[in-house]
Computed example of a mutant assay.
Amino acid sequence: MMLVVYVGIFILTFLSMEGVAWFSHKYIMHGLLWSLHKSHHVGHKGFFEKNDLFAFVFAIPSWLFIMLGVIYQSPVSIWIGSGMTAYGAAYFLVHDIIVHQRVKWFRKLDNKYVKAVRRAHKMHHKHLDKENGEAFGFLIVNKKYFQ
């Protein structure tokens, strides 16, 4: 019975992270920390970009939830941290591998969801500055991008 609760916490956390990602992207990455995120919009030399530092920033809370959950024997904390980690992995897979193809895997995916994600992200990247952006979320795509 408790496993069902823990899996529910994991799923709820995973789904909630889309809202966290949207808020962080719109108000932090396109706001206060634009100086780091800008490299993702205007290009860069080499494989890595300043924007990649956000992966470490966003990994800290999930690591803390898991670590403190282990130390204090709190399964809820571990499952929250695991949901956050799973979202980060999904985001990396979709954003960096499928959309930006920083690693040349899954290059020939051709389904409605992948096309919609790519279309939404292309619309997001058409804005080279921090203002007037759109499509700040990522895994949940507005239905207008499916057309």
Rank of each mutant, 00 (worst) to 15 (best):
M1N: 13
M1S: 10
M2G: 13
V5K: 13
V5E: 10
G8A: 11
L12T: 12
T13V: 05
T13G: 03
F14P: 12
L15P: 00
L15V: 12
L15R: 03
S16L: 09
M17F: 08
E18K: 08
G19F: 11
S24E: 14
Y27P: 15
Y27G: 14
I28V: 15
M29N: 10
H30M: 07
G31E: 13
G31C: 12
L32D: 08
W34Q: 12
S35C: 08
S35T: 11
S35D: 09
H37M: 11
K38F: 02
S39A: 13
S39Q: 07
S39N: 08
H40P: 12
H41R: 10
H41M: 07
H41G: 07
H41Q: 13
V42D: 07
G43I: 11
K45G: 15
G46E: 10
F47T: 12
E49R: 13
N51V: 07
D52L: 08
L53Q: 05
L53A: 14
F54P: 02
F54V: 01
A55H: 11
A55Y: 13
V57A: 10
A59N: 08
I60S: 03
P61Q: 04
S62F: 11
W63K: 00
L64Y: 09
F65H: 01
F65V: 01
I66Q: 00
I66C: 00
M67N: 06
M67G: 03
L68K: 05
V70W: 01
S74A: 03
S74G: 01
P75V: 00
P75I: 00
I78S: 01
I80M: 05
S82W: 02
G83H: 11
G83I: 02
M84K: 05
M84R: 04
T85E: 02
Y87E: 05
G88C: 03
F92Q: 02
L93E: 04
V94H: 09
H95P: 07
D96H: 09
I97R: 02
I97W: 03
H100G: 06
H100E: 12
H100Q: 12
Q101H: 14
Q101Y: 03
Q101E: 14
R102V: 05
V103W: 11
K104V: 06
K104N: 14
K104P: 14
W105E: 01
R107W: 00
K108L: 09
L109W: 10
L109D: 08
K112P: 15
K112Q: 14
V114Q: 10
V114P: 09
A116D: 14
V117M: 06
A120L: 03
A120H: 12
K122E: 13
M123C: 11
H127K: 06
H127W: 05
H127R: 06
E131M: 10
E131D: 15
N132W: 04
G133E: 05
E134D: 07
E134V: 12
E134R: 03
A135K: 04
G137T: 13
L139Q: 08
I140P: 04
I140W: 11
V141A: 03
V141L: 03
V141K: 05
Y145I: 12
Y145S: 04
F146N: 02
F146P: 06
Q147P: 06
